[in-house]
Amino acid sequence: MPVPTARFLVVLDADSTLIRNEVIELIADEAGRGAEVAAATEAAMRGEVDFATSLRSRVEALRGVPLAAFARVLARVEPTPGVRELIAAVHERGGAVGVVSGGFHEILDTVAPDLGVDVWRANRLLTEDGALAGRVDGTIVDAAGKAAALIEWAAERGVPMSQTIAIGDGANDLLMMDAAALGLAFNAKPAVRAQADLVIGTVDLREVIPLLP
C-alpha cells in the first residue's frame, strides 16, 4: 500500500517528548532497579556515554521482568500536555507526524496510534519464557538511526527536507534535529538546548503549533 504524500513532516522523540515518562525507567521499577536505570538514562541523555552501549546495559537490568508487567507500565504512561492538539494541527495543515525512539515498540505500538501518530520506529526487546531476556532485538535505534528515519519518512511522503521539523530532548536527538530544517529542543538537556535552532521552554507541545509551515 503506498504511503500518502504530505506537505510537511514533524518527527518527535518519544520519551520525555511525546510522553512525559522515560519508559525504560517504568519497566525498571518492575525489577526494583528504577533508581539505578534512571541515573544511567540521565547520563545517556546528557551525552556523557555512548547511547547504544548505555542502552544495552540498562536493558540487561530488565532481565526477568514478566511480560504481564507491560500492562502496568502502559497504565503509568502520560502523554505530554498539548500532544493531541499538536498532532491534530499537523494533520489539519496537511502534514504527517512521525515518532522515532530509543525506547521500545512494546509500549509505542499502543501509545503512538492512540495519539494519532502516522509512523513510528523504536527498539524491540527480546523475550524468553514469558519474561524479558535482558537484550535488544536487532539494530539499536540510536542517534544515527533517528536521523535516518526522519530522512527516510520525508522521502517516502514526498516531503522536501526544507519542510521537516524534529523535536527532542536528549543528546541522541541531535543528529535528527540537525538533519531537519528546524530542530526544536523540548524539555531538553543543556547540551541539546545549546545546539537547537529553537528552545521550547514550556512543557506543552501546543507551543510548537505556531511554528508549523
Score class of each variant (00 low, 15 high):
6 A>M: 03
6 A>T: 02
8 F>M: 01
9 L>I: 05
10 V>W: 01
11 V>C: 12
12 L>N: 01
13 D>T: 07
14 A>T: 01
18 L>Q: 04
22 E>G: 09
25 E>D: 15
25 E>H: 02
25 E>Q: 04
32 G>V: 04
34 G>N: 05
38 A>R: 01
41 T>Q: 05
43 A>L: 10
45 M>C: 03
51 F>G: 13
53 T>I: 11
54 S>A: 14
56 R>M: 11
57 S>P: 09
57 S>R: 15
59 V>I: 04
59 V>A: 03
60 E>P: 05
64 G>C: 08
65 V>Y: 14
68 A>W: 00
68 A>S: 15
71 A>V: 11
74 L>S: 03
74 L>V: 02
76 R>S: 12
81 P>H: 10
86 L>T: 11
89 A>V: 11
90 V>C: 09
92 E>A: 14
92 E>C: 08
93 R>Y: 06
95 G>H: 03
95 G>A: 04
98 G>D: 09
100 V>C: 10
106 E>D: 14
107 I>A: 13
108 L>W: 01
109 D>P: 12
110 T>Y: 14
111 V>R: 05
116 G>H: 12
117 V>H: 10
119 V>W: 09
120 W>D: 06
122 A>R: 00
127 T>S: 15
129 D>H: 12
134 G>I: 10
135 R>C: 06
137 D>R: 14
140 I>C: 02
140 I>N: 01
141 V>L: 06
141 V>A: 00
143 A>F: 01
144 A>N: 10
145 G>P: 09
145 G>F: 07
148 A>G: 13
150 L>A: 03
153 W>N: 01
157 R>E: 03
159 V>T: 07
159 V>P: 06
163 Q>F: 05
165 I>K: 00
166 A>S: 01
168 G>C: 04
172 N>Y: 04
172 N>W: 05
173 D>L: 11
174 L>Y: 13
183 G>T: 02
185 A>P: 13
187 N>R: 06
191 A>M: 12
193 R>Y: 13
194 A>N: 05
199 V>N: 08
203 V>A: 14
206 R>D: 01
208 V>G: 13
209 I>T: 14
211 L>K: 06
211 L>R: 09
213 P>K: 02
213 P>N: 04
